[in-house]
């Protein structure tokens, strides 16, 4: 029997997903495993990471607990992980403050997690030569990088930096046939938005601004990420993909 035709298959690929213990990262880990990938799942919370592991299809997946804002955790993660073909830099947080009330420690926290962790993790992986030739990097930015809303300055700026960083990676790692792209999701139904500091009423109103009158589902972002990880995305690098409507 011939194998089913599927250019989006991840069979034979190993993919590291950060923020795999929740939301978009968890959906990405699950969908990657369903398409044949071996998943390396990382996050801070052991219990939530365990829930993701339990939901994966197939065998051989690994989970490594790590706080990406801690240098020692990043180096241990990279040391312990196997060779990878895909990196999904997805871990992120949000803090809402009007600019006049921005707190220094929150600003640090947002940039450490959303932006600087992309730099440190990518650097550590590439220095350790853990990314295979022909690999793919996907950085989860946000529509917020381009469409600012009141109180979202810290988050928006941190995500604009991520979109730019994805392009720099595309340029510098092209000689190794490694691709790099950014994904910009609109609002997605995840725990982030339940604790994001918007009232239930404001969320319902906001949904009406979307063509489909709803927020995205985590797997609808995962499928875009998978396109970029798979061979179907072989001629996409240095791009930004908006997933919103």
């Amino acid at each position: 029997m011939t194998e089913a035709y599927n250019p989006f298959s991840l069979a034979g690929k190993t993919v590291l997903v950060t923020g795999a213990s929740s939301g978009i990262g968890r959906a990405t880990a699950i969908e990657c495993s369903r398409l044949g990938a071996t998943v390396v799942a990382t996050g801070r919370d052991e219990a939530r990471l365990g829930e993701t592991m339990a939901a994966l299809t197939g065998k051989g997946h690994v989970s490594i607990q790590a706080d990406l804002t801690k240098a020692e955790d990043v180096s241990r993660l990279v040391q312990e992980m196997p060779q990878i073909d895909g990196l999904v830099c997805n871990a992120g947080i949000t803090r809402r403050r009007p600019i006049s009330f921005v707190k220094e420690d929150e600003l640090q926290e947002v940039f450490n997690t959303n932006t600087f962790a992309c730099f440190t993790l990518t650097k550590a992986i590439m220095k350790a030569r853990k990314m295979n030739r022909g690999g793919s990097m996907v950085f989860v930015s946000s529509m917020a990088a381009r469409q600012v809303t009141p109180g979202n300055a810290m988050y928006a700026a941190s995500k604009a930096a991520v979109e730019s960083f994805a392009r720099s990676c595309a340029l510098e790692y092209a000689p190794m046939q490694i691709r790099s792209n950014a994904i910009l999701p609109g609002m997605v139904e995840t725990p982030m938005n339940n604790e994001g500091g918007l009232s239930a009423e404001a969320i319902e109103r906001d949904k009406q601004n979307y063509l489909m009158k709803r927020y995205g589902k985590p797997e609808e972002i995962a499928w875009g990420i998978i396109y970029l990880l798979s061979d179907a995305g072989a001629w996409s690098s240095g791009t930004s993909m908006e997933i919103t409507c």
Partner: peptide, 15 residues
């Protein structure tokens, strides 16, 4: 009064 003002009030109370 707007969502931004609400956020400012919340932040003021925090501060």
């Amino acid at each position: 009064y707007s969502s931004l003002i609400a956020l400012m009030v919340i932040s003021m109370i925090d501060e």
